[in-house]
């Protein structure tokens, strides 16, 4: 069973539907007992990093997320669920985040009307190297993005995929041991997104 962590950071319906589509069982939960008993964890999220961190702390899930990642359980972050894994986000006046992945989350520079912020739509991901989660996914496939802030790991060895927007090439997918996270919405990215979700549902957490 997969636990989709609910920390009042957006709508989780589509994540659950996509997991069901690839043949796995998932529950949407904020219950620590359910999360601890799950075989794997999906950590989604939309909205602002500051509110997301406030909610995580209020629900007592910040330390639980760290413990679950440390336990070696397969863990998948999506969008804001990726951003709060970093040390700090520029959003909401420098929000201190979970600090699991070294680095920061930074704001895109808008240059309207050509370059609008947020980035909203389909952009390509250049995968760097091999990983069980991207097996069967063509390089430079397109995924669906909605975000104003982008992850900037301090060590490029965490980067699994790169995307270019607003004159920045950023890490749109990262990995660290049993943890993988995407800035793009796997649940809204059609067949390639479903393929990565399917790979995650079979993954043993080892690279």
């Amino acid at each position: 069973m997969i636990a989709i962590i609910d920390y009042k950071a957006g709508n989780l319906t589509s994540v659950k539907l996509a997991v069901k589509k690839v043949g796995a069982e998932a529950v949407i939960t904020s219950d620590p007992i359910v999360i601890k008993s799950a075989e794997r964890i999906i950590f989604p999220g939309v909205g602002a990093a500051g509110a997301a961190m406030d909610n995580l702390r209020a629900l007592g899930l910040d330390s639980l997320v760290k413990e679950e990642i440390a336990s070696g359980k397969p863990f998948l972050g999506i969008c804001v669920g990726l951003q709060v894994l970093f040390e700090m986000s520029e959003e909401d006046g420098d929000t201190e985040c979970l600090g699991i992945v070294p680095g920061q989350v930074k704001l895109f520079k808008a240059a309207p009307p050509e370059t609008k912020v947020p980035q909203m739509g389909w952009n390509s991901v250049n995968f760097i190297g091999e990983h069980p989660l991207i097996e069967g996914v063509r390089n430079n496939s397109y995924f669906y993005f909605v975000h104003s802030y982008y992850p900037a790991p301090s060590d490029s060895s965490y980067t699994l995929g790169e995307t270019t927007y607003a004159d920045v090439t950023f890490s749109s997918m990262i990995f660290k041991d049993n943890l993988v996270a995407s800035q793009f919405h796997l649940e809204k990215s059609g067949k390639v997104g479903l393929k990565i979700l399917e790979n995650f549902c079979k993954w043993d957490g080892k690279c």
């Binding site: 980035q119 739509g121 389909w122 952009n123 390509s124 397109y142 993005f145 270019t164 927007y165």
Partner: peptide, 8 residues
């Protein structure tokens, strides 16, 4: 690059 969306 970000692509143009086609929306039925």
């Amino acid at each position: 690059m970000l692509t143009k969306r086609i929306i039925p």
